[in-house]
């Protein structure tokens, strides 16, 4: 079986698995990293949203063989590591996670790791463009939340952006 090597949450890992197995399953079923959730497997629901080299992506749509050994994957478990220690909040978490806690966004929580990962990438992108997050930006988020936590997600993103 082919060996797959990449970096996940700061650690280089090697897994024996076929090239075409999507990264989501490698993370969840083989490495036991269960923060990214399954909601569709076809890059629609965005519950699995994680970061590759700092950008949002969906591991359910990436065959593991397409990763190179230097590709850095960050899942919700490793998100605090994307910011310097002094930027982390009261719980030692990424400012967006702290905003999520303060706003009590979560209901069942299933979609929330993906929501947070998508929110961080959105804010990074908007900041790089030198502007503030607008309602129109929030309207582009595709992550579904069947519990309907959208109102608090919008509030938390504004809050998190101001802390980032």
């Amino acid at each position: 079986m082919p060996e797959q090597t990449f970096i996940v949450n700061g650690e280089r890992v090697t897994v024996d698995v076929e090239d075409d197995v999507r990264l989501l399953w490698v993370l969840r079923d083989l490495l036991g990293i269960t923060g990214p959730k399954y909601g569709c497997g076809i890059n629609v629901c965005k519950a699995c949203t994680s970061h590759v080299n700092g950008k949002a992506f969906n591991p359910c749509a990436v065959p593991v063989g397409k990763l190179s050994s230097d590709d850095e994957i960050t899942t919700i478990e490793g998100l605090p590591g994307e910011v310097a220690e002094q930027q982390r909040g009261a719980n030692g978490l990424h400012p967006m996670q702290e905003a999520w806690l303060e706003r009590d966004v979560v209901q069942c929580g299933y979609c929330q790791p993906g929501q947070i990962m998508a929110a961080v990438a959105l804010v990074n992108r908007v900041k790089a463009e030198g502007r503030q997050v607008t309602d129109a930006d929030l309207d582009t988020i595709r992550n579904i939340c069947r519990c309907g936590t959208y109102t608090r997600i919008r509030e938390a993103i504004a809050d998190g952006a101001s802390r980032m």
Partner: peptide, 17 residues
Amino acid sequence: NRVDALAAVTGQKEFTT
């Protein structure tokens, strides 16, 4: 605030799968 929020936002909240 919810008692399970910290687990949920850090990916530690466990569902069946």
